[in-house]
């Protein structure tokens, strides 16, 4: 394998100022995930999440949010959207 010392110029990418090419395709999703933290909570007894439905709490999997959260691995990470303050 051919190798040589790397000079400072070699380490500077061409057109260094700017955004990587791939990010020109970045966009806001067509169907966003809207989660109000006050309307989702974790039930320690059943070890499942619940979602508010009026004045009732339903299993999240029976709520319309569930399918959105299951879609294609693009669901938001739990640490983005869940209150972990444990009041």
């Amino acid at each position: 394998m051919d190798s040589r010392a790397v000079t400072e110029d070699d380490r500077t990418t061409r057109g260094a100022a700017g955004t990587p090419f791939g990010l020109r395709f970045a966009r806001t999703p067509r169907a966003g995930v809207e989660l109000d933290l006050d309307h989702v909570r974790y039930d320690e007894r059943s070890q499942r999440s619940l979602a508010a439905d009026g004045d009732r709490w339903l299993p999240l999997i029976d709520h319309r949010l569930a399918q959105t959260l299951q879609t294609s691995g693009e669901s938001p990470r739990e640490d983005e959207i869940f209150d972990k303050s444990f009041t």
Partner: peptide, 12 residues
């Protein structure tokens, strides 16, 4: 994590 509807399905 605590918010994972897919895991909820399996646990159910």
């Amino acid at each position: 994590g605590r918010l994972d509807a897919t895991a909820d399905l399996v646990i159910t």
